[in-house]
Design a protein around this nucleic acid. Structure first.
Lengths: 327, 327
DNA sequence: CTGAAAGCGCTTACAG
DNA sequence: CTGAAAGCGCTTACAG
């Protein structure tokens, strides 16, 4: 592997001059530049990024911590982050926790080890002092979800307003007994659940804890929800706030096995507006999240901070109800 | 940011000794080790990976070139590659071409620039000399699909056998006019289409070029296919080899709009066996690919080659027909 | 416009 | 068991 010194020798100039040519420094004569370019081509030379980094340059690598890339929501988010990063000359490392929160610390250490210039964290539960400091230093950006107690900046939709939107629609359709599914376990800072409860209260509807289903993840979770719901001997809910289109798709598929008709026997509200929401039968009524915008904003903010540029101001991330067939 | 020298000063030993403690070198007394560990903790020290790399260590980063992470097939493949890599101490960089093949070269240069130790290429069309050389050097592994003319090792299913499997089933179900969808444009090295044609020929069925649909991508592509098919004034096919579950889901959804019943009016065969195949109505009959195994094997092979270890021998990747409802 | 030299933070042969 | 010094491949003040 050719080094800058090889190039310098071949072009009969100093290493300094080669470096200057490489970095488009002014004050390199056209003639010299040509010679150097020829030498680089002959030697099939590529500058060693590692050496450049050691001299203070950035790694031009950022990371994104997600739970599962197989969750389409994250696939779309990662897609947008990657595209934005690439356009700004950064590559993206995917860091999956797969539910193992200890990995989070390990991933975040990659910043201290200089492997990564920064990280986008998409689903933080607990913000350690270290994380708070890295946020202050502009090396960590929170995106999508943070359910801890500290007051930290997060690039996200207005979670409470979004679930208000959806819940209100269910109530308008006449539902008074509505189940709530969540992928997490019950948490005081779950703004989506807060918005849900608030809307119910506003309408004078009481929520029964037996209608709260936690740890419901993906299509399999949706199926489990339906099975559990059918197995209870109390009065069944007539609608469900599924908190995800995958969950909704699982519910709809399982409902067919129980010969339940959607939405007449059970109304199913999705969340996210993933492409799959238009592929089920019936199609999923859901709440659209501007996921592309969210990913782009997070990447732009992180890179701006890394490069010590002002973070561009952005419009708020707005959700909207997409009415299809499942409610 | 504390450096090894800071640690050495604080622990009152030489930099050499700190380095040795860091690398679990023998011949460091327990007492010294303790002192050093304390100093490292006090200073919140992390070794600078960049400096380590410059001294010849690996970057412990590998890449995977894919078209779109939003394609669930790739999301699942990336998931498995990432998990395998992580277990071996490597991180994974996602490199999306989004159909722009020029990016491929750019991504591959990351190896020469020492940013990445190696790359898994999932959908190569044309193998340049540079790529062939990197394959020889064990820095590139081909996985999933390579449709060029050179004879190169690829970690993949037996494409021809897989489409034979599916096509045969369609024929057994009585279909004699079967459409073929592909995401690419027509190519002599498309083994899936070869297997399709071969099966037809074996059954004495002729294939009409008007039943070949190229550039059909994702659910939107499936919808387009159905619209085109319905618009032709020639005899319509009674079945379609969709070449992907997303495409199949799009066809099924669009068929409902045309009041076509699946599978009686049109049998739809998927490919991949993605989770979504069990979520549509009717559910998708498809060909299962061992995608987890494929991702794992590719990551293991690449890392073995990077570390100059023997590549573990693996069982062949077997596909199987999953009969659901759409055929 | 060009070059000699220091130094980024490590590891490792060499010497003790 | 420990340390002084060279060197990985660059960039950048400094000097000309």
């Amino acid at each position: 592997m050719a080094s800058i010194e090889d190039v310098a020798k071949k072009a009969r100039v100093s290493v300094t001059t080669v470096s200057r040519a490489l970095n488009n420094h002014p004050y390199v004569s056209e003639k010299t530049k040509k010679k150097i370019e020829k030498a680089m081509a002959d030697l099939n030379y590529f500058p060693n990024n590692v050496a450049q980094q050691l001299r203070g340059k950035k790694s031009k690598m950022i990371g994104v911590i997600i739970s599962y890339i197989t969750n389409p929501f994250f696939a779309y988010l990662v897609n947008e982050i990657e595209k934005t990063a690439l356009a700004k000359g950064y590559n993206l490392v995917v860091l999956q926790t797969q539910g193992n929160l200890e990995l989070e610390d390990f991933f975040i250490q990659l910043i201290s080890k200089k492997q990564l210039d920064g990280i986008i964290v998409t689903n933080l539960e607990h913000a350690t002092d270290n994380i708070v400091q890295l946020i202050d230093e502009g090396k960590i950006i929170l995106c999508n979800r943070y359910i801890g107690s500290k007051d930290l900046p997060v690039i996200q939709i207005d979670e409470e307003a979004a679930s208000y939107q959806g819940t209100k629609f269910l109530i308008e359709k006449g539902h008074r007994k509505i189940a709530f599914c969540t992928g997490n376990i019950r948490n005081a800072h779950d703004h989506r659940f807060k918005g849900f409860l608030k809307t119910l209260k506003e309408a004078g509807i009481e929520f029964s804890d037996t209608d709260y289903y936690e740890n419901i993840l993906g299509a399999a979770g949706g199926r489990q929800f339906l099975q559990k719901m059918m197995a209870t001997d109390t009065l069944r809910p007539t609608a469900v706030f599924s908190n995800g289109d995958e969950v909704a798709a699982g519910i709809i598929s399982e409902a067919r096995k129980f010969q339940l008709t959607i939405p007449t026997d059970l109304a199913v509200l999705g969340f996210d507006d993933q492409p799959m929401a238009a592929l089920t039968n019936p199609e999923i009524t859901t709440i659209h999240q501007p996921i592309e915008e969210m990913g782009r904003l997070a990447a732009e903010a992180l890179i701006a901070k890394i490069e010590e540029q002002p973070v561009p101001k952005a419009a708020p991330l707005e959700t909207r109800l997409i009415v299809r067939e499942s409610v």
